[in-house]
Amino acid sequence: MIELYDYELSGNCYKIRLMLSFLKLDYVSKKVEFHPGKEHKSEKFLEINPLGQLPVLSDTNLVLRDAQAILVYLARKYDKKNIWCPIDDPEKLGLIAQWLSFGDLITGSSSAARLHDTLFYTEFDIGECRERAHAQFRILDEHLFFQEQLNQSWICDGEKPTIADIACFPYIALSEEGGISRMSYPAIRRWMDRFKRIDGFIVMPGVFPAGPRSF
């Protein structure tokens, strides 16, 4: 049975919930109270993940941390159609990995800004976090604009979205909670609409639903 160490308001856990929903997989959500309990820093949890970070996935004998690593695992293990993380094309795989890592960079900026504004993580320099997030969003917006010019809808080329889209989506969608407006990223805003219309899409607190899937 798949078990997810999970916190409802965490965007990184949301990446995994999205993947599980897209793949229509059952799982057990093991709640870890990030706020106010700081359970992810408890001794008990540090045994599961010494980094003291969510999410962690356990599946039979495997215990896996890091949202991006978990996305790779779930896609390779359970995506029978080989859509979310195709490995036959080395170039594409390289690009997916590049954007997975970019997704984690966004955690470092946008998620940090959100923690500062929402949960009072005053140790973060909020101005600097926001600036970094804007710089990253510019890069993605430019990329997505030219993807559209080439009739590509997703971060990596192809008909279907990949785990790269999942890794980038949550903390972009939650950025405004950290005071990072998305008005200046129209290509990102359009991509978000497309993402929200993927079959199996679910929301989390802070993310609004889009309209009907087909029209």
Binding site: E8, L9, G206
Partner: peptide, 9 residues
């Protein structure tokens, strides 16, 4: 927290 998290945005 879920409820308030939904109101916040």
């Amino acid at each position: 927290q879920t409820i308030f998290g939904q109101d916040k945005p």
